[in-house]
């Protein structure tokens, strides 16, 4: 992959919490490239550092060591204000829950990053995005009047509306039933296929991961392996394999 094709790059990223005996390395030297127009899933057991990695990549958190590049911008040295504006203009984010501002309607939530930037939405793109989430008739509703799945789709639309360089999603389907999950994943998938968006998604659901082009496996803050063009079965196999490796490692350590 040439530099021009990379949307985000992590280079030897460490994240260290605490100090002395209670020191935890949430990330221990993670290096990875995330290609433009690609859908990447990050998997791993709970506490393996997935969210931490995503936050570092999205400029929400600063690595203790290493660098993160969005295109050719080094996020680790960017001052707070520029970082905020970069998040607003060039990054989309979908959290597991509580994604929407309760006082704003669905439409207002979608356009919020643009409104904060003082930009006018690109009407064609808006229509496309809103069409794709399939909530035309719900745009005037407040979040409390939408189901969990609908809320997550609105959050996805918000993440996409400013045509960001990357959309990060941290377990976006973690709180949803399988049907709603399907809607949300379909939407992310289509945004990559049809609109050439770049998506990085954390999940622990093999089915969700199977929507991606590539899966990265994380354990103890380190990249363990990677799977290209996954299916639910191959992901499951890879997870099992990792678990046994992990157990043996633990036994050896113990």
């Amino acid at each position: 992959m040439s530099v021009g094709d990379v949307a985000v790059r992590a280079a030897g990223v460490w994240k260290r919490y605490g100090g002395g005996l209670t020191q935890v390395d949430a990330l221990a030297g993670v290096s990875a490239d995330f290609g433009k127009g690609r859908f990447t899933a990050i998997m791993g057991p709970s506490g393996s550092g997935k969210s931490t990695l995503l936050h570092c990549l999205a400029g929400l958190d600063k690595p203790s060591d290493g660098k993160v590049f969005l295109g050719d911008v080094d996020l680790t040295t960017l001052p707070e204000k520029q970082l905020t504006h970069l998040r607003r203009d060039r990054i989309g984010f979908v959290f597991q829950a509580f994604n929407l501002v309760p006082t704003l309607s669905a439409l207002e939530n979608i356009t919020l990053p643009l409104d904060l930037a003082g930009r006018k939405p690109d009407q064609d793109w808006m229509t496309t995005v809103v069409d794709t989430i399939g909530l035309m008739d719900r745009l005037r509703h407040k979040p409390s009047e939408l189901s969990g799945g609908q809320q997550q789709r609105v959050a996805c639309a918000r993440a996409l509306v400013s045509r960001p360089d990357v959309v990060f999603a941290d377990e976006p389907t973690g709180n949803l039933d399988s049907r709603s999950s399907g809607d949300v994943l379909d939407f992310l998938h289509r945004s990559v296929r049809e609109f050439n968006q770049t998506v990085v998604m954390v999940t622990h659901d093999p089915t969700a991961a199977s929507y991606a082009d590539r899966v990265l496996f994380l354990a103890d803050g380190q990249l363990q392996s990677e799977l290209v063009d996954p299916t639910a079965e191959t992901v499951l196999d890879a997870m099992k394999q990792l678990e046994t490796q992990q157990d043996t490692a633990d036994e050896l350590a113990g």
């Binding site: 998040r87 607003r88 984010f93 509580f98 919020l112 990053p113 904060l116 918000r158």
Partner: peptide
């Protein structure tokens, strides 16, 4: 608090 965190995450700066 959470809502403010969200707003900050999606790009609201401190003056805003």
């Amino acid at each position: 608090t959470r809502e403010i965190g969200l707003l900050r995450a999606i790009g609201m700066d401190r003056p805003q």
